[in-house]
Design a protein around this nucleic acid. Structure first.
Length: 483
RNA sequence: GGCGCUAUCGUCUAGGGGUUAGGACGGAAGAUUCUCAAUCUUCAAACACGGGUUCGAUUCCCGUUAGCGCUACCA
């Protein structure tokens, strides 16, 4: 598929207060498609359910999209501010003879539904008010009765959805009920507002979750009634939790922003999300940058089946990105983590950058730089009890580290080579393996058993801190004996 | 219940009438001995079930089962 600047797509979330994972993936696919085609991405907030929507809730969605680096070209538009448009469309459908007023009350409808259900019938609205003529309906409305406007679904035939991912999907019209277009207070339902806006905004491709597939015939019917050009539909499978049910709070974080707070790099999250339900036609490599993702993207390679959100794989992507990022790029993200952890490194930027480079091959998460690697950036760090247990529990080693510290103090030049030589000489004199001192020193210096090469650490920390921490090893409390 | 969608290792997936059914994450084992959550090597692990069609089905068709979705004056 080649660039087509007339392509117009939209991401149309309802304002729930945050951008959830499924929504983010839909937004991402729309974004990838728009960027690939050099088309236009529109952000539209579907806030016609006033009871559940507030303007502030949009902030969470915008924040999530910004974090993910998904920019849009038009909007955000708010459906709550376009109410007249929906009334106009409703009127057109009414004029076309494809809608009618319904005076049934909620209670009546509910009662009828339960009767039908009890009788084993599909609980759909039976169209009782179809027989009320328009003049009579208008007279009753003028008389103060409240009514909804329903679409008049054909009572036979099939509506087929030409879907770019699922192919042709057919629905028998008889299965559809005469759905509500306008509520009794004049507010449109979703079915009316999407169609109105998608036509008005000249949307060419509707890329959205597969949960909308079954609703699509209702929308196609409206396009026909309005004699409007049909967009291309592309329904993308849903994202499931590990138990294969729809992803929800039960499964952990559903808000995209929570992943930022958990130390995930945005590009890693985006890469992971892109590959959930889509695979590039010919690629074996999974770590893909923006431009690769964009040029490889296509509706035709979207999967037909739902995908389970795999946290382990996300963490792997995160590791890959942290490792491959230059320290410069990691720096602002890590600074955020330091701030949150109350770490204020006193060092010049160059030192910080090179230390980040030293550490990043072993990082899996941005939080590592403020937790496991805390000792590199702050003197206020703790010792991992398991590390002490493993490498630094006997007094002989601890005392030897003090000797080592003294020799380092006497050294004319403190380099990796010299530091190693001194340590190995000391071990030889004491008739023990150097490894014991190396591992013990590592724990004394960083509090961790997992770390880069010891002598690189020493030089990074500098002679002063190295000596101080080696000497402090004697005073490290023994780990609480655990069973 | 009705309608729709889906079904390849635990997970994401490639593949497709004849293949040792491929890759990635995760898992296991080994190497390294300056640690490992690093690195390298190796291994285990899948075509849901039943019928067709066919010389031959994991692949095509039908059914069953299961999962998911929709079935509102929610979106």
């Amino acid at each position: 598929m080649s660039a087509d600047p007339t392509v117009r797509v939209r991401f149309a979330p309802s304002p729930t207060g945050y951008l959830h994972v499924g929504g983010a993936r839909t937004a991402l696919f729309n974004w990838l498609f728009a960027r690939k085609m050099k088309g236009t991405l529109i952000l539209r907030i579907e806030d016609t359910d006033f009871e559940r929507s507030t303007p502030e809730m949009v902030e969470g969605i915008v924040q999530g999209m910004k974090w993910l680096g998904l920019d849009w070209d038009e909007g955000p538009f708010f459906q709550s501010q376009r109410l007249e448009k929906y009334q106009e469309t409703a009127k057109k459908i009414l004029e076309a003879g494809q809608a009618y007023y319904c005076f049934c009350t909620k209670d009546q409808l509910e009662a009828r539904r339960s009767v039908l259900q009890a009788a084993g019938q599909p609980p759909k609205y039976e169209g009782n008010c179809r027989k009320i003529s328009r003049v009579e309906a208008e007279r009753r409305i003028a008389g103060g009765e409240s009514a909804v406007l329903r679409f008049m679904v054909p009572q036979g035939g099939v509506t087929v959805i030409p879907d770019a991912v699922f192919g042709n999907v057919e629905f028998a019209n008889i299965e559809l009920e005469d759905f509500v277009l306008l509520r009794s207070d004049g507010i449109p339902t979703y079915h009316l507002s999407v169609v109105t806006d998608d036509i008005d905004m000249r949307i060419t491709h509707i890329i959205r979750g597969a949960d909308h597939l079954s609703n699509t015939p209702k929308q196609i019917l409206q396009y026909r009634a309005l004699n409007a050009a049909m967009p291309i539909f592309a329904h993308v499978p849903l994202i499931l939790g590990p138990d294969k049910t729809r992803l929800s709070k039960r499964h952990g974080a559903t808000s995209v922003i929570a992943y930022r707070d958990e130390g995930i790099v945005p590009e890693a999250f985006r890469n992971f999300l892109a590959l959930l339900g889509w695979t590039p036609a010919e690629s074996t490599r999974e770590v893909m940058r923006d431009d690769e993702l964009i040029s490889a993207f296509g509706l035709e390679n979207i999967s037909h089946s739902n995908a389970v959100f795999d946290r382990d794989k996300l963490d792997w992507f995160n590791t890959e990105y942290i490792r491959s990022y230059p320290a410069e790029r990691l720096f602002p993200l890590i600074e955020e983590e330091w701030k949150k952890a109350n770490i204020h490194p006193v060092a010049d930027r160059q030192w910080l950058l090179s230390t980040i480079d030293l550490l990043k091959p072993r990082a899996r998460n941005l939080k590592d730089f403020s937790v496991a690697f805390r000792g590199y950036f702050s003197d206020d760090f703790t010792y991992d009890p398991a590390a002490i247990e493993k490498f630094l529990k006997d007094d002989a080693t601890r005392n030897a580290l003090s000797d080592l510290a003294q020799r380092y103090a006497a050294l004319s030049e403190f380099t990796e080579q010299n530091a190693e030589q001194v340590l190995r000489d000391l071990a030889a004199e004491k008739g023990v393996k150097a490894g014991g001192f190396i591992n013990g020193s590592r724990v004394a210096l960083t509090g961790q058993a997992v770390a880069p090469s010891l002598f690189a650490i020493m030089v990074a920390l500098g002679r002063e801190k190295t000596i101080a921490r080696l000497q402090a090893a004697r005073n490290i409390p023994d780990p609480p004996s655990s069973s």
